[in-house]
Structures are given as structure tokens and as C-alpha cells.
Design a protein around this nucleic acid. Structure first.
Lengths: 292, 292
DNA sequence: GAAAACAATCGATAAAATCGATTTAGGAAT
DNA sequence: ATTCCTAAATCGATTTTATCGATTGTTTTC
């Protein structure tokens, strides 16, 4: 039993005339006769009574046709669903995002949700390491994070934008009106950094080491809003990507040095099928870059 | 898209291993790969992500599989239904019966309904002419009636039994203890016959004509129970097939003559598929003959 | 680094669908 | 009756398709 045969059968049932049905099906009458016959043999019951030159549906044919139609319909519904999926009217996107991308990501997220209200979105915040592991297990459609040194052959890297590393200080701080600051100066300041599991912190510790500097890291805190509260006291400072800062009570002072930029990347699996919805999300993320 | 491909796809989805799935499907791995690929091309979306030697279902694959399963299930349900139909657990039988067969038919009917409680039965009483016309329009599975002169080439005739024509008289009648009666004697009696549209009446009028007899037909009544009421008055008599008589207050006196028998037949369409249920009904009708 | 596992691909073959032509037969018109 | 028309069945040839076995290219495992 094949969908083709069911389709033929239903058309024949509809017209009760093999010749006409064959014409509409764009096959020969011979083919239709044979396919119907084959179906009848498989079902072990005639679907039509051949009375002279007329054909009329048997009881079995009548009852079977209901299911034939359902079978075809379900297959077609599946097809339609996939079309819909491509039209972004259904579906789900799962994204991993590092904490420091929170602000920039939120913009794209709200825009996406507005444009494609029927697509469900799951956002998982985490550290780059965690996120990339989960990406490898196919748990994410893509991950939004900073560029790490090594590139994995399974992964696809799309550069989104560069973001300066900045020293975050209280607006009341004496540093507040500096237009830039050197790594050496930063090393002198009491620092409250993000948790060392974070790539940003890791990146900075490495930078200090390279210059043989011994930074004064007083705290490591696993939450950026809390970090800001600490900074606002005026006593401590923190180091973040520029993209993380949007609090009016603090200032972001770019750190000097050509390596003091980090590249924000979209990382996805090379081999995985890229959902239409995901592509749209990429576009939105790239758009953000411009009106930032 | 064919059911075969959907079946392959679902098995591959279940095992997430083409080689294994192919084994269980009794096809080669090569075939499976190609059929899946073909399906994906038709659907215009990958159903599996090929990540190295592993395959995992895509979002599209996940969503599509639901419909693939439904489609297959519906087709299978249709198949099961037809099996059921053959097992006489569903279905419908439509039968045309002449009034004079009422009693004999009722026995078979109750027996059939008892044995096959899931089969719906429609019984249409009517005149032979009406019934045969409807049979020709495929409105009946078969017709139970007397044998008429001509045989139609489209029809199949099965003899069921012979039934004497009888004069029906009141038990109180002086005729009541006669073991037979001649057509000439009958012609003398005041008669109340079934309506002349009925074949029995027609048959008798012909028989009287052949012998140049002028019967005393006082009434024609289109209802056998009413005829019996008339007969019970003792004044009138009627002529019926023996099979029509089962009222204790009347007696049935066989009419003499070799043609005074009528053959009860099952008449059906030669070309139409014969339902299992109908065959069973035939058997029961033949059984009746014996314990009559 | 070798071996095993697995999906993709290729070329060949078997199976099946399809076609056009012909046959068969019913129904309609003469 | 006879002829004509129409429609389904059948037949043989052809094309298309499914399938297979063998091979290739990866990836994972040991």
C-alpha cells in the first residue's frame, strides 16, 4: 500500500470513472486500472464493483476510503507543517548566551520575539565553556559568546562585533573623566571581578600575567548587577566588556592596548541544519551592531 | 512521499542508526540512506542532522514524525477495518423481501442478528417488481422473493425451497378438514386476495385464466394480517403461499395441481462483490428450509 | 595509529510503474 | 439485430525507481 495508490483510489472513487480519473491524475487509464487492482489484491477485497462498463464503490471501498483520505491528509499536514516551519510560524530556538552579552542580547531578543511571535525561544545563560559543551551535545541552536583562542573544527564562527574591554568605575570616582586607562594603572586599583570561571576574567588574568602585573583582585562575584552595586560604592572597580555596561551611575573607561578588544561571536555547529528562525536571529544580531 | 519512505523514516528515527534500522526493515543500509535522502529532498528540509557517524533528529524531523506516524496508522487502520469486515465484525446488509416471505424471513433474520450482532441490517419489504428494480440499482445485497418466469442475465438465482400455494380458510369453515382443494372449487369461493400488484396474486389470476375460470374476487388487500382478519370471519377466503401462513385461527389447504407450487429464490447481482455477511445470511436461509 | 563502526556514494541489477496498443464488453443509436 | 461508441481490462515494451553489494570517507574506540 502506497500513498500513490490511495491517491489514485480516491480520485477514482470521486469520479467513478477510471478514464476521467486517470486524466486528472496525469496517468494512463491502464496504469490506474493496474494500480487499483494491485491495491485490491493487497487489501484482499474489491474496492469497486465492475458492473458492465460502470464501476461503483463496494461497501469495503466506501469504508476504506475514509482511512485512505485520512492517511493522505496526515502526510500532507506533515508537509504543510514543514512549510510553516520554514515560514517561521512555528518552531523553537534555543540559544546559549554568556552573561556579559546580556544587554546586547536582550535587544535582539525582544526584536525577534516581536517579529516572530509564534516562535518559542529558550535562552540559557552560562559560561562559555558550559555553553560550548552543550552546543556540542546539540542542545543549542547557537551560542553567543566571546571568541576564544582555539577554533574547533566542528564549529562555525561568525564575528558579530568587537567590544572594548573597559574599566568600570563609579561616576563619583576621580577616574571618571579619563578617556582611557592603561593596564598598569588598572593593576593598582582594588578590583571586584566576575567569577574566574568566566572567560572575561580569565582573559584579563592572562593579560596581567603577560605583563608581569599583579592585579589587586579583592572579590570575584558571579553576578554582574551585584558587581555594579559594588562599583557604585566608589571603592572598587571592575573590568568588563563594554557591551556589559549600561548603568547610568557608572562609567566605562576603555583600557589601552591593542589586545584590549574582545570579539563577540555567534558559534554554531557546522553540521547541523540551520533553522530559518535561527538565520533570522543572526540577522537581527548583526543589525544590533549598527544602531549601537 | 510514499508510505514506504515514512515507514523507513520512523524506524530510523526510533533507532537513530541507519544500519540497524535497515536490518530490521530487511533492506540494505544503502537503500535506507537513499530513501531518507529522497524524502528529505521532497520535504525540502533535513530530517536528521548527520554529525560524524551519528545521526540525530532535527526539529523538522521531530515535528514531521508525528504526522508520518499518523499517516501510516490511518492506512493500517483502513487495512484492519477491511479485515474486520471480512470477520463480520462490522458492515451492513441490505435485503429486499416480499411480504409473503415475512415469516420465513423473520426466523433467519433473528438468527443472523443473534450470531452477528455487529452487523447492521436493513430490510425493505416490497413487491417483487419494486425489489428487483432496486436490486438492479445496487440498493440491495439480495432480494428474497418467488421465482418469476424470465431470468435476467445480470442476476444470480439461488433456489431456496418450494412452497405450496394454499387456500386460507377460517378454522370454523366447513372446508377446514379438507386435505386439499381443486382450483375449480376455489373459484367458487368468495375470495379476498392480496393486492394485484403482488406476484402471488398475479400468479393466481393467470392460473384461473388458463383454466377459463372466473374467480370470485371480492377484495384486494395490501396487508396480510388484515387479510387474515377477513378470513377469520369465516365468509371470505384467501390464497397465499404456504410460507405466509402461521396464524392458529386459520387453516391452510393445499391447492391441487402440479403448478401450484412456487419457488422461493435468493436473487442477487451477478457482478457485485458478495460480502461475507451476505454469504452467511444465505447459509442461514438455507438452514431454515430444513427445520421447517 | 590501527581497527571498528557507520553513513554516503557509486554502478549494476531487479522490480515496479507507466505507457500505448489492443481486447473485451456494455450501452446506445440506428 | 447490427453498428457504433465508450470504458475497463489486459498485454508487451519501456522507462523509472528501488534495491543491492561494494567501496569510500569519517569518526569513534581501543
Amino acid at each position: 500500500m502506497e500513498l500513490r495508490q490511495l491517491k489514485y483510489f480516491l480520485k477514482a472513487k470521486e469520479l467513478l470513472n477510471f478514464t476521467e480519473a486517470a486524466k486528472l491524475l496525469n496517468i494512463s487509464q491502464s496504469t490506474l486500472s493496474q494500480q487499483i487492482k494491485q491495491l485490491e489484491e493487497e487489501l484482499n477485497v474489491p474496492l469497486f464493483n465492475r458492473i458492465g462498463k460502470r464501476i461503483i464503490l463496494t461497501e469495503a471501498g466506501e469504508m476504506f476510503s475514509e482511512y485512505a483520505l485520512l492517511s493522505i491528509n496526515k502526510a500532507n499536514e506533515g508537509l504543510l507543517l514543514l512549510k510553516d516551519l520554514n515560514n517561521l510560524s512555528v518552531g523553537k530556538v534555543i540559544i546559549g548566551v554568556v552573561y556579559s552579552m546580556r544587554i546586547i542580547f536582550a535587544k535582539a531578543l525582544t526584536e525577534f520575539a516581536k517579529q516572530y511571535p509564534n516562535i518559542k525561544i529558550q535562552v540559557v545563560f552560562g559560561t562559555t565553556k558550559d555553553l560550548l559543551e552543550k552546543l556540542n551535545s546539540h542542545l543549542f541552536d547557537f551560542v553567543l559568546t566571546f571568541h576564544e583562542g582555539a577554533e574547533h573544527p566542528h564549529l562555525k564562527y561568525q564575528t558579530l562585533l568587537s567590544s572594548n574591554m573597559v574599566l568600570v568605575a563609579s561616576k563619583k570616582s576621580t577616574l571618571a573623566n579619563k578617556s582611557s586607562i592603561s593596564l598598569e594603572e588598572v593593576a593598582q586599583l582594588p578590583l571586584a571581578l566576575p567569577f574566574s570561571g568566566y572567560s572575561t576574567t580569565q582573559f584579563f588574568v592572562d593579560s596581567f600575567n603577560q605583563k608581569d602585573l599583579d592585579p589587586n583582585i579583592c572579590m570575584e562575584i558571579n553576578d554582574i548587577p551585584t558587581l555594579f552595586e559594588i562599583v557604585k560604592t566608589g571603592h572598587w572597580h571592575t573590568i568588563l566588556s563594554e557591551t556589559s555596561v549600561n548603568d547610568p551611575q557608572v562609567v566605562a573607561i576603555p583600557i589601552e592596548g591593542k589586545n584590549m578588544k574582545r570579539t563577540i561571536m555567534i558559534i554554531s555547529l557546522k553540521e547541523a541544519y540551520e533553522k530559518k528562525a535561527v538565520k533570522k536571529f543572526y540577522e537581527l544580531l548583526r543589525g544590533i551592531q549598527e544602531y549601537k
